[in-house]
Amino acid sequence: MERTIELTVNGTDHQVTVEPRTLLIHALRDEMGYTGPNVGCESSVCGACTVHVDGEAVKACTELAVRAEGSEVTTIEALGDEDDMHPLQESFQEEHGLQCGYCTPGMVMTAAVFLEEEPDPDRAEIREALEGNLCRCTGYQNIVNAVESAAAEMAGAVEPATDGGTAVEEGGD
């Protein structure tokens, strides 16, 4: 029995018709065209599908689209673009925090909420925060470097980061 749900993705209101079993990640990618978040392990482990739901990092492979009705979802697409990158996107590039890049959208989305809550983390805290995001290329060293460098960049920024996407309201459930 299909249902039509309403939700906001990256500030845009969407109406989408899904089966109850449709996972949020598939609704985002296949129904609405947000292909930034990736489908990795499909078992809540790898974190490649991480998006923000009402301001919290969530694995979109482990949520039903029907349960996201009324939610504000933010995907990596909202964080920045080539001309105006989020400090995390810049630092992942600068620090070589990616190789194949498949895990990167999830890494960045998890790190973005984390840096809002903990603007000045140490390396152990960064590793702990990224526990739910697996990378099979880099060995994590450069990823930790990237988050550390973004934190410094964001702390030193005179102007607030032009992220637009991470400033959604806290809480929500």
Binding site: S44, G47, T50, E56, A57, V58, K59, T62, E63, T110, F114, A129, E131, G132, N133, D173
Partner: peptide, 9 residues
């Protein structure tokens, strides 16, 4: 329990 994203849900 789990990781950050899992604990959020």
């Amino acid at each position: 329990v789990g990781d950050r994203q899992v604990r959020n849900r």
